[in-house]
Design a protein around this nucleic acid. Sequence first.
DNA 1: ATCCAGGCGTTAT
DNA 2: ATAACGCATGGA
Length: 227
Amino acid sequence: MVSATMNNTIHTVFCLLLDKYGPQGWWPVNGIYFSGEENPFEIAVGAVLTQNTAWENAEKALERLRKRGLLTAEAIVNIPVYELANVIRPSGFYNQKAERLQLLCKFYLRRVCKNESPDRDELLNLKGIGPETADSILLYAFHIPLFVIDTYTRRIFIRIGSVSEGDSYEKLQSLFMNSIPRDEKVYNEYHALIVRHGKDICRKTPRCPECVVNREGLCRFGTVNSL
DNA sequence: ATCCAGGCGTTAT
DNA sequence: ATAACGCATGGA
C-alpha cells in the first residue's frame, strides 16, 4: 500500500516467485478432498499430518482416513489410538501424530464447533501444535492473515541475506508481516511459493544458476556460490 | 543405498 | 537458553 512497503526485498521476491511459478493453489480450496466446500477441519488434520513429512505422504494418510469415514473429530476421538496410528501410517511419526490428532480433535469438539476460529494461544497449548502448525491452520483453514514460517523460509532468506541463523519464529513472522500488506491471500500464496522454490531450486544444495532471485541479483549466496 | 520431507516435544548441556 | 535427539514412511 505505502511505497515503503512496496519497495523491499520481501515484496520483490514474492513478485518474482509468483511470476516464475504461478499460483500454487495450496490447501485445495475448492475441493480435491471434498466436492464443493472447503473443509477447515480437514485442513487442520492435514497440517498435523504433514509435519516434517512430504505432503504426498500426508495425503496418503488423509485418503486412508477419508475412506474409513474417519475425517471427523468425533470419529477420530472415538477410535483407539493404535488403530488411528495404523491408518495414518504413511504420514510417518504415526504414533505421536495419532495421539496429537486426538488432542486436536478434542479441542475441536470443545471449542471450534460453532464456526469460531480457534485462538492462536489455545492451539499452541495443545501438545503437537507448534507455531508453524498453528499458523498454517489459522491461515489456510480460517483465513486469518498470519504469515507461516518454515525451514524453507529460513533457508531462502538467510541466503538472500534478510535474516540470520538464530532469528526466532516470531521475529521472522514480524519481518514478513511488516513488509507486505496484511492480506490473507497474499500470505497463503507467498508461503506456498516459498515451499515450491525451496523444494525445486533453493534446496540444501542450491541450484543457483536456475534461480530467479539470484538472476535478479537479490541473493548474495548465489553470487558466491558457483556450483 | 543415502538423503530428505510444508515440526514438535523432551532431554541434555 | 539453546543444542541434540527421537519420532518413521516413502520418493528421488
